[in-house]
Amino acid sequence: MLAIVVLLVIWWVAYWLKLQPPHLLPSPLDVWGTFTKLLTNGAVWEAVTKSLQRAFLGFAISVVLGTLLGLALAQFTLFRRAFGPLITGLQILPSIAWVPAAILWFSISTEAMLFVVILGATPSIANGLASGIAQMPSIYPRVGKMLGATGFDAIRFVILPAALPGYIAGLRQGWAFAWRSLMAAELIAYAPALGIGLGQVLQQGRELVDMPMVMTAIILILFVGILVELCIFAPLERYVLKQRGLAGAKR
């Protein structure tokens, strides 16, 4: 809370010193005006919904791919040796680097955006799950085998639940990457026919040199990303840790 106040004060001082002309550095009040105006106007909500739809779809595909990849990394030593470093490398590569390639392959389309999101999120999810499995106490798979859990049953009843804390950490990071990647993709893959997402609102603001609109878009992007984190991943993680007696009820 204090951090936000400090940030606002710095902003105000910068505005007051006229570090940039007012149309490039509007006052917080101007941005607030545009912000509230845009919020009451349905267009922004449409953009938020559109972006969230794309992000969730891309994230869902990433979860499936990342889970399969993570299981393969954990179960097959040869696969891990061959592809482990590559997948970790992909995690480091900024997914915006894929945008030009995606546009060339898929043209400016929803598929191109999803492609970038998937490449952004999948490695984190795969690595999170693989490290969750690697950190699992070795007694669990033995107990599973003893109880008669083999093959798919072992994955479903023992390995996935045992690796859940690491898996959720991977999902959480995967979500952050998915959201970032989508914004990068939306910013570049800009075609009104595809529907306007938050990244495209940002791009519109740039083209119209409408700084309050740009600022509003930035705030919304941040806000939506944090909201998903706070409403989905944080409670999920807390629940899982609490269930296992690994964390106090509150942080």
Binding site: I139, V158, Q243
Partner: peptide, 27 residues
């Protein structure tokens, strides 16, 4: 055969009853 381990080898993500239920299900 059924094997019982030294350390607590119960699955911490399940309740006591659900640990038993899993064994029943897998049996």
């Amino acid at each position: 055969t059924a094997l019982m381990f030294q350390e607590s080898a119960l699955f911490p993500w399940l309740t006591a009853g659900d640990n038993i239920k899993l064994a029943l299900r897998l049996a």
